[in-house]
């Protein structure tokens, strides 16, 4: 079962929840195996909280067209076909902008002269780590690369092909509500939206909720730093009939442990108690899916 841990707003606690939850679930043994995969490929940080040992590193490439000016007849089909404007006909030259390319192959396939063969370009890497209790996978985009989606897609494909379906896979997803988080969410069975009980948290939660409804994904909410702000998030969830799985408390101790790169669920009992609710919720979710 794959769970995307997402949020609208950044900094609400996706990584705190993901890392602590992976550790707790491994301890509880509700699932035959646990995988924590950091899909926030532009700034992966789950690894900071995990004692780990590299098992395998995979270079990830994407395909971009390369213009062959000797074959080109200057017809301009490529320019008119590209939805992302990543390829322009300028007089007698074709200019390719690799950063805008989504590797859709349209220009390459439709070029009547085969003057745009696709070529490999390195975009990042995926590293598989062993920890004492679970498998940790980090995907990291190279500096200067702008497209997170192809790396997220390839990383999830790898997990799907290598590990049993009854493992619990937690995807620590990118923030926001645009393409990268959609890529992580659409390939998951369920989404946990982490928010904070503030006007900013609520505003971005609503965008994330709309996104999940648009792509028809089941989801529920975890409130982090419960105790600050106001009760507007709770009222919103109740009006919209959205499950609130847990309310992780706001405590200075948690921030202190976090700043030292430590997990908190064992040392802060109030946090551990709420986190257990999330673990149990996932177990129930999985049982229900298996019975269907």
């Amino acid at each position: 079962m794959k769970i995307a841990i997402a949020s609208g707003k950044g900094g609400t606690g996706k990584t705190t929840l993901s890392t602590n939850l992976a550790d707790l679930c491994a301890e509880r043994k509700d699932f035959p195996g646990i995988i924590l995969a950091d899909m926030d490929v532009e700034e992966p940080n789950s690894g900071l909280f995990i004692q780990r040992e590299v098992q395998k590193e995979i270079i990830r490439n994407k395909m971009i067209p390369q213009w062959d000016k000797d074959l080109c007849s200057n017809c301009g089909v490529c320019d008119s076909i590209c939805r992302f404007n990543s390829l322009l006909k300028l007089g007698k030259t074709i200019l390719v902008m690799p950063e805008l390319c989504h590797s859709c192959y349209a220009c390459s396939e439709l070029c009547p002269e085969n003057a745009l063969p696709m070529q490999m370009q390195k975009m990042g890497r995926q590293t598989i780590f062993n920890t004492d209790s679970f498998i940790f996978i980090e995907s990291r985009l190279d500096v200067g690369q702008e497209q997170a989606v192809p790396l997220i897609a390839q990383s999830i494909e790898y997990i799907d092909s290598k590990y049993p379906k009854d493992f619990l896979v937690l995807l620590d997803s990118p923030p926001g509500s645009s393409c990268p988080v959609i890529e992580a969410a659409k390939n998951s069975d369920f989404v946990i939206l982490v928010t904070e009980p503030t006007p900013f948290g609520l505003h971005d939660l609503k965008m994330a909720v709309n996104t999940m409804r648009e792509i028809k994904k089941d989801f529920a909410v975890v409130i982090n730093r419960f105790g600050i702000g106001n009760d507007a998030v709770i009222r919103y969830c109740s009006d919209e009939k959205i499950d609130i799985i847990a309310k992780l408390p706001d405590k200075r101790e948690i921030a202190e442990l976090y700043s030292k790169g430590k997990l908190v669920h064992r040392d802060v009992p109030e946090f551990g108690k709420e986190l257990k609710k999330v673990a149990k919720y996932l177990k129930r979710l999985s049982d229900r899916r298996n019975n269907q």
Binding site: D79, C82, R83, F84, N85, S86, L88, K89, L90, G91, L95, M97, L100
Partner: peptide
């Protein structure tokens, strides 16, 4: 209406 590549597209027009 262009979600992507507005800059290069306008630049092409100017070109």
């Amino acid at each position: 209406n262009a979600a992507h590549g507005a800059g290069p597209q306008t630049a092409k027009k100017l070109f």
